[in-house]
Amino acid sequence: MFKYSFHWRQVWQALPDMLWGALITLEIAALAMILGTIIGVLLALAKRSNNRAFGAAASVWVEIARNTPALFQIYMVYFGLGSLGVRIDSYWALLLGITFNNAGYLCETFRGGFKAIPETQTRAARSLGMSAGRAMWHVVLPQMFRVVFYALTNQMVWSILMTSLGVVVGLTTDLTGVTQELNVRTFRTFEYFFAAAVLYLVIAKLFTLSARLLAARLFRY
């Protein structure tokens, strides 16, 4: 017979700590997304270039990021580099691991976005006297980011959820880490992890809604 006793009062008392952990989660996800976007654009450009070395290096990065578990990538940063004498804090190990994973996925997203921009756009910009770099910065990149905007939104949600892997490398300040610490002290596993799951759901939905509202404002024409 089901006799579980729910202790939600402890969850309410711990809610400020969990909300602070949620802020750390958002911080890591946002930084990993920004860095992953920058690297992803560079990787996509490398794969589009005529330089075989750059293209091969970008392909290796993408293949590893997309075809190995994200958990292994975080392990390699934290434990792998640690075995070589490079000690990295669990916060930075998680951030670098998610950034590596994001860059690999975003590279292919951006490569598809670049293909969606007609070559005539670049030629028109060059005919107006723009250099190749200025044409890329002022003409191609803005249109490309518009094409891949919703894919970027999905990747950000994935980054938020991926921060939960930080607990395996000892991170205790993010939402999952705080929840695990509370669970260890009280053994109220169901209550705390249910509350954490709700917070992850709310964060993801709020971000998705915000992104849609932003898209409706930015892409009206």
Rank of each mutant, 00 (worst) to 15 (best):
L199C: 01
S83W: 09
G112W: 09
Q180K: 13
T122Q: 13
Q155F: 09
R188A: 08
T122L: 12
G129C: 00
T68L: 06
R87K: 15
W20M: 13
F114W: 04
L23I: 15
T68D: 04
M1F: 14
S90Q: 03
T172A: 12
W61L: 05
V147Y: 10
F6D: 10
Y4F: 13
G82V: 06
A44I: 03
R212Y: 09
I39L: 15
T25N: 04
P69L: 07
M76L: 15
E119S: 12
N154L: 12
L218E: 06
V198S: 07
R87E: 15
A58Q: 01
L182A: 03
M144K: 05
N101R: 09
F193D: 03
G36I: 07
K115N: 14
R212F: 07
R66P: 01
D17K: 11
V202C: 08
L23H: 08
A32P: 10
T99V: 10
A30Y: 12
R123K: 13
M130S: 06
N102D: 12
R126M: 14
S90E: 04
V169I: 15
T176Y: 01
S90T: 02
Y91V: 05
P142L: 03
W20Y: 13
Y78K: 00
A211Y: 09
Y192K: 03
S5H: 14
Q73E: 02
A58K: 02
T179V: 07
L26G: 15
K115M: 13
M144F: 08
M156G: 10
L106H: 09
V169Y: 01
I160H: 10
G112C: 09
L94K: 01
T173G: 03
I98N: 00
V62P: 06
L182D: 08
V140C: 02
A56W: 13
G129I: 03
K205C: 11
M33D: 05
M162C: 12
A132S: 10
A197Y: 02
A195F: 03
A103E: 04
E63D: 15
E119C: 03
G85I: 04
G80V: 03
L95R: 02
Q155W: 09
V41A: 02
L128Y: 11
S127V: 01
A116N: 00
R48H: 12
A65E: 10
V62R: 10
L106M: 15
L175H: 06
K115P: 08
V157N: 10
R220F: 11
S83M: 11
G133H: 08
G21H: 11
L71V: 12
